[in-house]
């Protein structure tokens, strides 16, 4: 597959995630849209790693392997991030009995 198709697929997924973050007000859905954006980037990293491997296969058989390890580390960081983020949302729900992000502007006062 030409790399263009992967770039446009990942761009479309990323922009759907951006639109979701901007249109929804439920904090958990916003969080899920952030996960969607992370996954679009992961997909593009893997596609680029395979492209890199194809281009450099003659000189370096291990070319492109770093990209896949970055994806692995992104997943690890995302797992830690999700656990902390959901804990914050649960705490917010306990205080306001809602997951509406507009309640968060109380932080101003």
């Amino acid at each position: 597959m030409p790399i263009n198709y992967y770039i446009f697929l990942a761009l479309a997924l990323f922009c759907i995630g951006v639109a979701g973050v901007l249109t929804r007000r439920n904090a958990i859905i916003i969080f899920m849209c952030v996960e969607l954006m992370l996954n679009a980037v992961n997909l593009l990293l893997v596609a680029f790693s395979k492209m890199h491997q194809h281009a450099l296969a003659v000189t370096n058989p291990q070319a492109g392997i770093d990209g896949q390890l970055f994806v692995f580390f992104i997943m690890v960081v995302a797992a830690a991030e999700v656990s902390v983020g959901l804990a914050i949302i649960v705490m917010m729900y306990r205080n306001t009995h809602s997951t509406d992000v507009n309640f968060l502007n109380r932080l101003k006062h």
Binding site: M1, P2, I3, N4, Y6, I7, V46, A47, F48, S49, K50, M51, Q53, H54, A55, A57, P61, Q62, A63, G64, I65, D66, Q68, L69, F72
Partner: peptide
């Protein structure tokens, strides 16, 4: 962008297998 000749190769290549990734990791 001029990427017509850049292919993301499918169904071959060893770098995604757990053996190679584990060694580098």
């Amino acid at each position: 962008a001029d990427m017509k000749n850049q292919l993301a190769v499918m169904n071959k290549g060893e770098i995604g297998l757990i053996h190679n990734l584990g060694l580098v990791l």
